Amino acid sequence: MQEEVKKHTQKIYNTMRNPKHTFTEKIKEVLIEIFIIVFAVTLSIWLHSWSEHKHQQKEVSTFLGNLKDDLQDDVKILDKEKEVYEKTNLGYEKILSLTSFQLDSIQKSNTKVYFPINSQGPKLNIDNYESFKSSGKIGNIENEKLKQKILNYYQRLVPSINEVDKVYNDYLFKCFDKMIENADKTEKGLYSDPKFKKTIYFLITIGKNNMRVYDKNVKLGANELIKEIEEEMNK
């Protein structure tokens, strides 16, 4: 393009110095050359912009495809984590339902009460999102609704899991502290202690709340986002 502009500029220069042409002819030829230059530059800019836009949208398409795979994996991870919550809560509920007679039997048989230990905290897939975001390419997603759903999922919903799981794990460690504090007590003394039972009760309650967050917030958000991505990719 630079050579073409240089060539037509030289023609303008030569035209203006040509003594055989009248002034009117010179102006006419100069205007034609200027038009050619402007058209060529405009076309070049348009082609470059079109090519760049096409490249950006290809990157967006690849990103959305990878993101869809990540989200589908997230749903599976959340389902598995929810199963762990349900199983663990069932174990805690069994502990709370132990009667004095049952605790006596456990103590006499010199056995231990099974206390489930599962520190919660699913590892969701955020690498593709973080990489695309850090490269400044999120703005290339032209579907504003889809872009906002992506940002909402990764900036609000995903962090909410860490927040609720942290509360749960904090209460789990409180149970450990109670066990240490009551290390000199029998199984019956520990598991019939009102404060210890109350801590387990809150642990169950928080676990149920966290399962709702998984299902009604994050998993629902992931499924909605998958649907939006599929619609966008099928356009």
Rank of each mutant, 00 (worst) to 15 (best):
F132K: 04
F173A: 15
K219P: 02
Y13S: 04
N18F: 11
G139S: 13
K54W: 04
K216F: 08
I27A: 10
P194V: 08
I141A: 09
E93M: 07
S134W: 05
E228F: 08
R212N: 13
L225S: 08
K20G: 07
E25L: 02
L90N: 10
K28H: 05
G121L: 11
V84I: 14
F39D: 08
F23P: 00
D177G: 05
K147L: 10
L47Y: 10
S192M: 15
K28Q: 04
T99Y: 05
N234A: 09
A183W: 03
V164M: 13
Y214C: 02
K235G: 07
N217D: 10
I77T: 11
Y153E: 05
T186G: 12
D215E: 14
L78N: 08
K197P: 00
P116Q: 13
S51T: 13
K123I: 12
I95N: 06
H55P: 04
V41Y: 12
I45W: 11
G221P: 01
N66I: 00
Q10T: 13
P122G: 13
H8P: 01
L190P: 01
M179P: 03
K133W: 02
D184I: 03
D165A: 07
K80Y: 10
T88P: 00
T62N: 09
R212H: 15
G139Y: 08
N217T: 14
L96R: 02
K123A: 12
W50N: 14
N128L: 09
F23E: 11
K54V: 08
N14W: 00
N110V: 09
K216S: 15
V113C: 08
D69M: 12
I229N: 00
I27W: 02
T88M: 09
K137T: 01
D193E: 07
K219N: 12
K208L: 14
E228D: 12
E4Y: 13
D193L: 13
S97C: 10
I141S: 01
S135L: 13
Q10N: 05
F202Q: 02
N169R: 09
E230Y: 07
H48Q: 02
V75N: 00
K76S: 15
K166T: 13
L31M: 07
F202S: 02
Q107S: 13
G91Y: 00
Q107A: 15
R17Y: 02
R17S: 09
T199Q: 15
T111A: 09
K7C: 03
A183H: 11
K174M: 06
Q120M: 09
I180G: 11
N162I: 10
H21G: 03
K26M: 08
I77W: 03
Y153L: 07
H53W: 08
L67M: 04
T62C: 00
T88Q: 10
K11G: 04
I150L: 03
M233G: 03
S49Q: 07
E142P: 01
Q57H: 10
S51H: 14
K166Q: 07
Q56R: 13
D74I: 01
N66P: 02
T62V: 11
I229H: 03
N182M: 11
E232T: 12
I106M: 13
